[in-house]
């Protein structure tokens, strides 16, 4: 196990290098000049050329890239934001608490909605409760996040005046965005819970437990649920990992100063260091969460633990539905 983790951590290095190369190349090819954004319309050409060379933007592609990687590897220096002049790390870390809260709360919301519904609809398969929760899940995945967010603002902020429409300072501010992001997550989690529960219920040992005359409640709780939740754990982990990147669309709708908004703003401003650093750290967080999920997974399911020696990874959910995470 220890060896496996070590290998996985080691493997992150080429992946992250690859991420750096992709994002660096993409930005290099992107039209638009950060220097002109920094200096404004009436800056003269000499000033622009000077700043450009100070930032190293006049060097050839490869030299720029090598410089960039070197600084990160040798000094953990991600550069300085073109817009604010602050170190990129500081810039990202100042947004991170917000994104972390949002990711945590919305994941909790998703779990709280999805798991009970998923279990119920599996137990009472094809009953009205099953049908309703399946429809809810379907609507959940199909509703674009920004539309749902707008409707929520209209209902809860404008008409009912229950929750504020923007910002992210008090728990009251968390509710609407967390519900918005949570419902689309809930849909995927509910489906997984339901199908894996169904699968487990049909297994022999559950049937045996039933035959032995164990009360239905105990059968469900003790025998079925425990095993059924394994794939659910994966999808929850993956969702959580993805939402650590910030919820780009929802942060836009609710004016939340999280990582997603930072990334979009930085792309607009051609704030290269922040985009590069941000994507790199997001990829890192994502890889770490993936690793944690895989490890947890092994702990929960002994069958899988034994498979690790065979180097096989089982993924039930993959990146399903990520497009709608927004």
């Amino acid at each position: 196990m220890g060896r496996y983790i070590f290998k996985r951590v080691l493997y992150m290095i080429p992946v992250l290098l690859g991420v750096m190369l992709i994002i660096f190349t993409m930005l290099y090819l992107t039209p638009g000049d950060p220097v002109r954004m920094m200096l404004g319309d009436d800056a003269d050409e000499a000033a622009i050329a000077q700043l450009r060379s100070e930032l190293g933007l006049d060097e050839p592609y490869l030299a720029q890239f090598i410089n960039y990687v070197k600084k990160i590897v040798m000094k953990l220096d991600f550069g300085v934001s073109y817009v604010t002049g602050r170190p990129v790390i500081e810039e990202i870390m100042s947004r991170y608490p917000t994104t972390l809260i949002l990711a945590t709360v919305s994941t909790l919301v998703a779990i709280a909605m999805a798991i009970p519904l998923g279990i119920l609809s599996a137990i009472y398969q094809n009953s009205w409760i099953d049908n309703i929760s399946r429809i809810v899940a379907l609507v959940g995945v199909s509703m674009p996040n920004f539309w749902q967010g707008l409707l929520m603002i209209l209902l809860f902020s404008v008409n009912l005046k229950w929750f504020p429409a923007s910002g992210f300072t008090t728990p009251a501010h968390w509710i609407l965005p967390a519900l918005t992001i949570g419902t689309s997550g809930a849909a995927a989690i509910m489906r997984t819970t339901r199908s894996s529960m169904l699968e487990v219920i049909r297994q022999d040992y559950v049937r045996t437990a039933r035959a032995k005359g164990a009360p239905e409640g105990i059968v469900i709780w003790k025998h079925a649920l425990r095993n059924a939740l394994i794939p659910v754990l994966t999808i929850v982990g993956i969702r959580f990992g993805a939402s650590l990147a910030g919820s780009i669309v929802s942060e836009q709708v609710f004016s939340i100063p999280g990582l997603g908004k930072l990334m979009v703003d930085s792309i607009r401003n051609r704030n290269y260091p922040v985009i590069q650093g941000g994507v790199l750290l997001i990829a890192l967080a994502y890889s770490i969460i993936n690793l944690i999920v895989d490890i947890l997974y092994a702990f929960v399911d002994p069958r899988i633990k034994s498979q690790y020696s065979a180097k096989k990874r089982v993924k039930y959910a993959g990146k399903e539905g990520q497009g709608s995470v927004g």
């Binding site: 780009i248 792309i267 990829a283 990520q322």
Partner: peptide, 11 residues
Amino acid sequence: NSIPNLLLAIS
């Protein structure tokens, strides 16, 4: 895969 889809699409 380690870059979130929407972020990649936006970039």
